[in-house]
């Protein structure tokens, strides 16, 4: 279970790549890919190096100007989905 105190980074097998057709960000991993919304892409980009989840939430809150609670729940739910797919290293 990922919480605000968890430290996360993107697994080595996952690659963030800009799509040449749509300009959207894709997260590519073995034989699969996820098309990312803009907010999902920002979360993934924030996980490039190992970070505390709380720090990611702080950064995205500052950038978006939206309520911290909302950003935190969005980040935790999206990171949980990545973790279920084995795309995160959680410590």
């Amino acid at each position: 279970m990922i919480g605000p105190q968890s430290r996360v980074r993107l697994a080595a097998k996952a690659r963030l790549q800009r799509d040449r057709v749509t300009g959207k960000q894709f997260l590519l991993y073995p034989e699969r890919g996820l098309e990312l919304s803009d907010s999902a892409a920002r979360i993934v980009a924030a996980c490039a190096a190992e970070r505390a989840v709380a720090a990611i939430v702080d950064e995205l809150t500052a950038a978006s100007g939206e309520p911290r609670e909302r950003i935190e729940s969005e980040v935790l739910s999206f990171l949980g989905a990545l973790d279920d797919r084995g795309l995160l290293v959680v410590t």
């Binding site: 790549q17 799509d19 040449r20 057709v21 894709f26 590519l28 034989e31 890919g33």
Partner: peptide, 10 residues
């Protein structure tokens, strides 16, 4: 294939 939009090559 990449020009058509392929992202994966098996």
């Amino acid at each position: 294939a990449a020009a058509l939009g392929a992202l994966q090559a098996n």
